[in-house]
Design a binder for these strands. Structure first.
Lengths: 205, 205, 205, 205
DNA sequence: GATGAATGAGACTTCATTCAT
DNA sequence: CATGAATGAAGTCTCATTCAT
């Protein structure tokens, strides 16, 4: 009983700290952010952070895990559409919308560290990229039955790369994407579906 | 005359320093690299670096400019192909090959900082993304005459995003992309061309 | 009545805490040991320690007092031997044996702090060294009646210094002393008694 | 040439820093002393210390090495006396005098850390205690030809322990030793020589 | 122009101590 | 009286930058 309450409090503290860290990291990047910045943002003492996280790096990993959970949840709908069009839209719209909701800045920081920090990169690869590619491949296999499986693996890479690239291009400040972000899923779905259907008709390679 | 020689020497020094910086940044990332690391890699004294660059950040910008020049050169061929297929292949293969030649690690660092450092991001946008999108848009306008210009803008974003995303996914360590990197341009060209041709036939939107 | 029980409990707690402190200090030294280490070793909360001791330093002083009591008890036998040989053996064997029983590591810590911490040093001088020298001097005065008292004072210093030095040399890891620790009292007694008797015969300075 | 000057300067700096460290450590002990204290005492910036020593612990080891060199030098005279009396006096007076010259406080700190810090202890044992015991044993073997070698090993321990103990007792604040420090070597020589000669006469054991 | 020792601000982290529960 | 989360001062060490040589 007591323990449960303690647990609640501790969990709330962790969240509070992670939120502060997210905000600070997002505004200055990981390395330039200081523990003091984060403590101030959280309204607590610097030492308190170390009661909940081993070190500064653990804050980043904590944020990564948070984002990774949300991402996986978003792409694991109760009933995934079985038709190609629905599938493509789901896979395009989900991630693209996620970014419209204010996580953009944090996403920047995480991508930044994924690029350069082997530990974060390994997690990204193992906990996010690999399972999501596998899930996608499975879903598309059903919708594109005659597709060559080896080819499908590349196609999935293309689809995920497209999404990742679009997110980044927008994060980099492209005005066109910013203005017309809502059109993007529709336009790309159109483009991809035609391409995929043509290949499916060709049935080869 | 004297000045010209001086200029030569100075330019050689700058290059020497940038190469050392590239190597060091690539191996440890920007922030963890120290001026001392770079000076040692270049075989010079720490102070000397400050005769050629204002500060540590300027080294990063210098490297960015170098990479940006090379990238623009690669995508500005003497005679760009006029047909869709040739065009798509050119735009896909160029960047994909560039990364196979050892700049991968440095590219990581630059992307990392583009994400998080406003100054680098601004340069990336102004000196690389915008001109390359514009050039691509012009080339494709000729090959897809009936395409809606507004739609073409999004298509170009998709194309460049696809490339960027593939590079990153490979950098993150995807084994499939690593193994089959050579197949990628062909496979994607196929996919995109069908999609684009279908849209072109449809001629609408 | 209630008070007596309270007192018992409190005393038990103090002992429990001191024992934990002894163990922790012995294994890491005083400064590197943390209150948390000690609390864990004692199986209690950190704050509880402050209900029984003012601060970390008080733990050290508490341990010192404990050891000091035991040492004085060991050298205050009911009936001290009156002959020189018995006396020398008593004074040599007692301390040398004490260390064989596992207090060695703690003794190290205390000596270490005596060296460097004025408060501990003062206690060591007042509560241990001075009374023990005085007691020894008294005992030897009886066994060496013609000895010059002033000279005896120095002799007592030599005897106690010899013991202290041997303990430390052994603590420092001398293999010879470790192996032959049991022979030491006998050998030194022999050496000293001859020397003392010769002086006694000489009867002068 | 240039290098030699550089070397001189660097060496002078090292000495300057070590002297400051000696002074600060001596007045507060090792742990309570801060790098800032030492930098101030040396009249330099904190960072400068790290240009010459890896970390705080290296300062202590540096001081230990200094003291260890001096100690060995003091006990390695050009022509060691061959008679017992001269020998005992040499071995007693040397160390006892060394302490009268102001290193007392530093010696305290080093002993303190020898007790508690395994790295320092190992050095003390290997670089000071062992070689000095060996040298002493060799010298005494010549002056006490009939002495049992195994017994001599213990005798040397006793002699060195006596010295160590006396130094420490004085450091701990014993007034008698402080006042009559000059008499000590003579008095102890007397005591020991009688004892040793008696054993030698006995020639047994 | 080259050097690299010196600088000192500032980063991360630890930990003795307090105090509300 | 027990607890242990919170505190924040203080410590060690790093490193971009300067400047006398």
């Amino acid at each position: 009983m007591k323990d449960a309450v303690q647990e609640q409090l501790a969990s709330a503290r962790r969240t509070q700290i992670l939120e502060a860290a997210a905000q600070v990291f997002a505004s200055k990047g990981f390395h330039p952010s200081t523990i003091r910045d984060i403590a101030r943002a959280a309204g607590i003492a610097e030492g308190t952070i170390y009661n909940y996280f081993d070190n500064k790096g653990a804050l980043l990993l904590g944020l990564f895990d948070l984002m990774s959970q949300r991402a996986r949840a978003a792409l694991t709908p109760a009933a995934p559409p079985a038709d190609l069009r629905g599938l493509v839209r789901l896979y395009l719209s989900g991630p693209l919308q996620a970014l419209s909701e204010g996580n953009a800045e944090l996403f920047r920081v995480i991508v930044s560290e994924v690029m350069v920090n082997p530990e974060v990169r390994a997690r990204f690869y193992a906990e996010l990229l690999t399972p999501m590619l596998a899930a996608g491949q499975e879903a598309f296999r059903l919708a594109l039955p005659t597709h060559d499986p080896a080819r499908l693996a590349l196609t999935m890479r293309a689809l995920s790369a497209l999404i990742l690239g679009l997110l980044l291009e927008r994060l980099m400040g492209d005005a066109t994407l910013e203005d017309r972000w809502d059109e993007v899923p529709e336009a790309l779905a159109e483009l991809l579906i035609h391409g995929l259907e043509a290949e499916e008709r060709g049935g080869k390679r």
